[in-house]
Structure formats: structure tokens, C-alpha cells
């Protein structure tokens, strides 16, 4: 929502002077992501370990000449244990900007300027895990997260990164449509021009979106609270406050010209010549 910023929001200004907000992820969400990662990582490791174990038993059954193979298997296993501890996170975050667990928890690692991270950042923040995990169970990391405003653990502080909750989906929420459409009689009862300030408008919008999930009594009660100050400003009857709110919102939304002036920008049709501007 574009309402009042939460204190876990970090505003980032782009070179175009557009400000958008990232919601930084707190310890709980990141703990879930970490748990998923650990399961994936050591689950895979376990499966391979069982396989090597069987190989080991098999090699002993066949005879000594196969023990070299089993030794190599143990070597591979140790190498994999190393990868699980040190390489897994670096590789995923370096290539993808997030590990599978973070993907599952809808998280993304970005730099504090809001850009995607590279290998250097991925390596730093994950090697520093060795410091965050001390003395046991990421106590240092969690304490550091609680002391910094971007929920950064030590690794994040050194690498200059933060973990943010993935932006809302690009799919646009459906605009609110008035149903049934306003009748002439209803419109006559309302003022011609309705001006709502942003807070009022946001409140009405929030109410209209939640309307279906409320019981009729609660709906009426909430609508009464919203309609009252508006009713004082514009003199109108309010038999059905919920309906009145929907009408007011519709009026306010359609304030201004409905016909767009010809665009100053010429949008090139897809596939057309590139517009160098």
C-alpha cells in the first residue's frame, strides 16, 4: 500500500528521482528460508551419503581392490560437506540473487542501494555466516539484525546487502467497480463535485475492498464511522452508508476529464523502429 510507511520499509531513490520502498525481511521470515535451504542442502547430502555408504559396503564385499573407489567416495563426500557449508549459498545468491529457500519464502538479496548483488557480495555475506552463527544458532546474527534498521546481520553489514521481501506481483489488482451502477436518483442526492483527501480516499478504498468479508452489522458500523464526517461536509441523507461510500468513491475517482489529451509522447508500436530519445 502507498499509505504511511512501516518502520521496516526502506526507501530507495532511483536516478530518476522516483522513490520506491522495499520491505526488509525480519529474522522470522529469514529463519524459515534458512530452514528450507538447510533441508535442501543436507537432504541432498544425506542421499549421496547413503549412496556412498552402500558403495563402501559393496566394495568391502567384493574385495580390497575396490577400496580405492570407496576412499574416493568418502573424499567426494567431504568435498560435498564443504560445498554445503560454504559454496551453496554463495553460488545461488551470486547467480540468482537468492537461494531456493529464499525463493520459497519470497525473499531477495539486494545491495543497500537496491541493486542486485554480484559474486563479491554473495561471497562476503555468506562467509561471514561463520561469525553470525556464533556462539550457537545465529545468536550474534539475530542480535545484530535487531540492532540495525535494515535487519542486517554481520555478513550483510560487511557486504552492504539487505534481504527484502519480493515486490508485489506485476498483475494489477482489479479496480473497484460500482455495482449496480449509480441511478440518476442516487446521484441527485449527492453533491456534484466530491473532493476526498488522500486519507479519506484510502480509507474508503480499504473499506470497499474488505466489504465482502464483513458481516452486515459490522459493515454498517464501519461505514457509519466513515460517512459521518463526510455527511457533515456534504449535506446528504445516509440511509445506506455502505452504498453511499461506494457512490462517493466512484464520483471522486471520475473527477477530472475523462478524455485523455493527445499524448505528447509518441509511443512506438511494438516491432516498430526504435525511438532514440
Amino acid at each position: 500500500m502507498t499509505g504511511a510507511p512501516l518502520d521496516t520499509d526502506i526507501a530507495i531513490e532511483t536516478p530518476e528521482h522516483i522513490v520506491f520502498r522495499h520491505r526488509v525481511a525480519g529474522p522470522a521470515r529469514r529463519c524459515v528460508a534458512y530452514f528450507v535451504d538447510i533441508c535442501i542442502c543436507y537432504g541432498t547430502f544425506g542421499v549421496i551419503a547413503i549412496f556412498v555408504g552402500l558403495l563402501f559396503i559393496g566394495a568391502h564385499a567384493v574385495g580390497d581392490e575396490m577400496s580405492g573407489l570407496a576412499g574416493a567416495g568418502v573424499g567426494v563426500l567431504l568435498l560435498l560437506a564443504f560445498c554445503a557449508e560454504w559454496v551453496y549459498f554463495v553460488a545461488w545468491e551470486g547467480f540468482q540473487g537468492r537461494s531456493p529457500g529464499k525463493r520459497a519464502a519470497n525473499l531477495h538479496v539486494v545491495t543497500i542501494e537496491g541493486r542486485p548483488i554480484g559474486f563479491r557480495e554473495a561471497a562476503l555475506r555468506n562467509v561471514l555466516r561463520a561469525a553470525d552463527i556464533l556462539p550457537i544458532g545465529y545468536v550474534v546474527g539475530v542480535v545484530t539484525m535487531l540492532c540495525t534498521k535494515r535487519f542486517q546481520r554481520l555478513g550483510d553489514l560487511v557486504a552492504g546487502t539487505m534481504v527484502v521481501i519480493e515486490g508485489r506481483s506485476l498483475v494489477r489488482a482489479q479496480p473497484i467497480v460500482l455495482y449496480p451502477p449509480a441511478t440518476a436518483e442516487e446521484l441527485a442526492a449527492l453533491p456534484m463535485v466530491v473532493r476526498l483527501d488522500p486519507d479519506e480516499r484510502a480509507a474508503i478504498e480499504l473499506f470497499l475492498r474488505r466489504k465482502q468479508t464483513l458481516g452486515p452489522a459490522r459493515e454498517h458500523e464501519l461505514a457509519e464511522m466513515l460517512v459521518e464526517p463526510l455527511g457533515r461536509r456534504y449535506d446528504f441523507s445516509r440511509r445506506d452508508p455502505s452504498r453511499v461510500l461506494a457512490l462517493l468513491y466512484e464520483l471522486a475517482m471520475n473527477a477530472g476529464r475523462g478524455d485523455a489529451p493527445p499524448s505528447s509522447r509518441q509511443s512506438s508500436p511494438p516491432g516498430g523502429p526504435p525511438s532514440w530519445r
Binding site: 520502498r21 515486490g167 489488482a173
Partner: peptide, 24 residues
């Protein structure tokens, strides 16, 4: 309204990552 602004913001954020991410 919030849905329009939110969706524009999400699209800006994604496009920003593409446009400036290459540099980073």
C-alpha cells in the same frame, strides 16, 4: 488508487533492477 500505484511501483522496481542491475 492504491492498486494502480502499487502495480506501477512494482513494475518500476523490476525495471529498475533490469536497467541498473546490469551495471552492478
Amino acid at each position: 488508487s492504491a492498486p494502480l500505484v502499487d502495480s506501477l511501483q512494482a513494475l518500476t522496481a523490476s525495471a529498475h533492477t533490469i536497467v541498473y542491475g546490469v551495471y552492478a
